[in-house]
């Protein structure tokens, strides 16, 4: 008999074991929902899968009675636009800040303390200030996402820049490279895959800020819809929206990982 620590599942078993908790959760939900609906057929807390299906049909496949729009896709489009813009802005600023503070000690001396302090401000706490500065429109939502995740990306890139072996910098200098050449040809290419990693890690926070901003003032968006229908406990809409956000987050993460492997195959060699 092999020791437990040495027993590894076969590929097939591994898949089955991985699926098991999901199946159990779905079954538990089905039992609970059935039990509650048997007692009160209009119960809204745990809708049946049929009710959820009807809600998806209504939100995604039929135009809204009032506005004629396909609400689900409208919400998805506007949320993804906000998230995309916020993340793009944050990664551009974060990369620049991280690269220069990491590579140039003079810049680091003046910018790093500020960066550290700014990164400690809880972005949600300054929401009312953001509204006054940026107004209530799209700008404030994008700004919240950007302000929320830029410091994280910047500090991560700064750290990665400093981790690049100094031998490389010395080597480049003996070959006659000047500062801008070192930054553009030695540091930047090596930082790109790390930027993708940082963005992947910060997307969770990005979603959090997106939904928080949409909950406060909006006319469409995934977070807006959830907080709106919460008013009459429409779990048949909320649950598929949560599942959809989870799926979107998963797909975006997987896309970024694939992108990184395609663009920077050298970074992923050697088991990285």
């Amino acid at each position: 008999m092999k020791r437990l620590i040495n027993q590894t599942p076969t590929p097939m078993l591994r898949v089955l074991l991985g699926l098991l908790p999901f199946v159990l959760l779905v079954l538990l939900y089905m039992f609970a929902s059935e039990a509650r609906l048997a007692e009160n057929p209009s119960d809204k807390l745990l809708p049946s899968f049929t009710q959820i299906g009807d809600a998806i049909q209504r939100m995604a496949l039929e135009p809204s009675k009032r506005s004629g729009d396909y609400l689900f896709w409208e919400d998805t489009l506007s949320s993804l636009t906000r998230l995309g813009m916020g993340v793009l802005i944050a990664s551009a600023i974060g990369l620049a800040l991280g690269l220069f503070t990491g590579a140039l000690p003079l810049v680091s001396a003046s910018a790093s303390p500020l960066l550290t302090v700014v990164s400690l401000i809880p972005p949600l706490a300054i929401l009312p200030v953001l509204f006054i500065v940026f107004g209530l429109g799209e700008l404030s939502k994008v700004a919240l996402i950007a302000i929320g995740i830029t410091p994280f990306i910047a500090r991560d890139i700064q750290r990665r820049t400093q981790e690049i072996p100094s031998e490389q910098l010395v080597k480049a200098q003996t070959l006659g490279a000047n500062t801008s050449q070192i930054v553009c040809r030695v540091l930047l290419p090596q930082l790109m895959p790390r930027l993708v990693d940082a963005v992947r890690l910060s997307l969770g926070a990005g979603w959090l800020f997106l939904i928080a901003a949409e909950a406060i003032a909006a006319t469409e968006g995934l977070g807006y819809r959830i907080f709106l229908v919460r008013r009459y406990m429409a779990m048949d809409v909320i649950l598929p929206y949560v599942a959809w956000i989870t799926l979107l987050a998963f797909v975006i993460d997987a896309l970024l990982a694939t992108l990184s492997r395609r663009l920077f195959p050298w970074h992923h060699q050697g088991g990285q």
């Binding site: 929401l127 107004g135 209530l136 429109g137 406060i216 003032a217 909006a218 006319t219 907080f227 709106l228």
Partner: peptide, 20 residues
């Protein structure tokens, strides 16, 4: 009119902005 869903907690801060 166009209705914008706004959290009651932020109503006063929101009202102070020029767009509202």
């Amino acid at each position: 009119v166009e209705v914008v869903n706004t959290s009651d907690a932020d109503m006063v801060a929101v009202y102070a902005t020029p767009g509202v």
